Each structure stands twice: as structure tokens, then as C-alpha cells.
Simulated assay, not measured.
Amino acid sequence: MSSNGADAAEAALIAAAERGDVAAIEEALGSGVAVDARDARRRTALLAAVQANHLDAARRLMEAGADVNAKDDINDSPYLLAGARGYLDILRLTLAHGADLASTNRYGGTALIPAAERGHVETVQVLIDAGVDVDHVNNLGWTALLEAIILGDGGPRHVAIVELLTNAGADVNLADREGVSPLQHAERDGYTEIVRLLRAVGAR
């Protein structure tokens, strides 16, 4: 295959993944295209499939050996993105295909931190069960617990996430860079249910 032909075939694979076209993915892989070929933004076909939440396409690519930890030019990987967006079925597949639980996004956060912030309750549970570090601190100086409080809305989903994190042994007194604790943030925002939960487990 000429280099131009190879480039075209790689582009076709990534475009097929973006459309969720499993037959076209099969065809591209059958022609010998590298499963982890990248586009101009350093996206692999698998990342393109995850961005569009195409489960069957993502599954086929993982079965073909696609790297669930391959990062694009903004440090998203299939695993990290599935966690951040709460794409549960794809996330479970990435975990079964060697997701690096310690890998971090462009903010220096694990998959658990954006999942907690965005209120993806089941995703948080799956990531905790997988063994992601509940006390990892990102580049902003925030843990998953702090993000769930500071960037959450104090509603039922974020309450549930705070409970999951505390049950998983998250350090409830791990403060932000200004020394403000999760409890102080929750009190300041008037999140009474989260305040109650945190106090019950010894938060100060």
C-alpha cells in the first residue's frame, strides 16, 4: 500500500468508527490498516467511536486489539473519555481490555474525578469497584469528593456520589489548595444533605 493509500485507509477506518459503521471497520481492518492509526488530532478509531458513544464499533475495535489508553492531542483516551461522559457499557469494556486506572486527563485527573463532578452515579461506582484511587488530587488541587461538591449541584445524584466516595474510604478532610475542606464547601453552598453525610463520617 502506498503511503497515500495507507493514509486514506487509516482515515477511512477512523471515519467508519465515528459513524459507528461496524461493517466498514471490518473492511478496513481486513485490508491491513493498523487498528491504532491516528488522525491529525492524534485520535485513534477507538477514541472516535467512544466520542460518538458507538458501543458496537468500540467493542469491535477493542476485540481487534485497539489501545484503550491511547491519548489524543488533548490527553483524552477511550477509557478516560468513557468515564468522564458516563458511557457505562463502553467504560466496562475498556476496563476489561486493560484500562490504566492511574492514567490522567489534561487536568491531571483520573476518570473518577469528572465522573463525580458530572453526576454519573453508576460510573463512579464502577470506577471505585475497579480500584481507581479515590483520593487522587488533580492539577486544580481537587479530589473527586471536592469536585462533586464544588462543581456539582448538591442534588440527589451528587449526594449519592458523595456517599459512594465516603463509603469507599475517601479522605473527607482532604482540603483544597486554599485549605477549604469538603465540609466547608458544602456548608458554604448550602448543601444540607451533603453536610449531614460528611459530618456523619467525621468531616471537619
Rank of each mutant, 00 (worst) to 15 (best):
S103D: 13
S103V: 11
T104M: 12
N105Y: 08
N105R: 08
R106N: 12
R106F: 05
Y107R: 14
G109K: 12
G109T: 10
G109P: 08
T110I: 08
A111T: 05
L112D: 00
A115T: 09
A115I: 12
A115C: 10
A116L: 03
A116M: 07
E117V: 00
E117P: 00
E117F: 02
R118Y: 02
G119M: 07
G119H: 11
G119A: 10
H120D: 01
V121A: 10
V121Q: 05
E122C: 05
T123D: 01
T123S: 07
V124A: 13
Q125A: 04
V126R: 01
V126D: 02
V126L: 02
L127I: 00
I128P: 03
D129A: 15
D129K: 09
D129T: 10
A130Y: 05
V132I: 11
D133E: 15
V134G: 01
D135E: 11
D135V: 04
H136M: 12
V137D: 03
V137F: 03
N139A: 15
L140H: 13
G141R: 06
G141P: 02
T143K: 02
A144M: 10
A148R: 04
A148N: 03
I150H: 09
I150S: 06
L151E: 15
D153Y: 06
G154M: 05
G155F: 06
G155L: 11
P156H: 08
P156I: 09
R157C: 03
R157D: 15
R157G: 01
R157N: 14
H158P: 09
H158L: 12
A160T: 01
I161F: 03
I161R: 01
V162R: 07
V162C: 13
E163G: 00
E163I: 00
E163F: 00
L164R: 08
L165E: 07
L165Q: 06
T166R: 07
T166L: 11
N167P: 00
N167D: 13
G169E: 05
G169S: 06
A170L: 13
A170V: 11
D171K: 09
D171E: 14
D171L: 04
D171N: 15
V172R: 02
V172A: 08
N173F: 14
A175N: 02
D176K: 15
D176I: 13
R177F: 10
R177N: 12
R177T: 07
R177W: 06
E178M: 05
E178A: 13
E178C: 00
E178K: 11
G179P: 03
S181H: 13
S181T: 15
Q184M: 11
Q184A: 15
H185K: 08
H185M: 10
H185N: 08
A186Y: 10
A186I: 03
E187P: 04
D189W: 11
G190V: 14
G190Q: 14
G190S: 15
Y191H: 12
Y191P: 08
Y191F: 15
T192M: 04
T192Y: 04
T192L: 11
E193R: 06
I194N: 05
R196I: 00
R196V: 01
L197T: 06
L197S: 04
L198W: 11
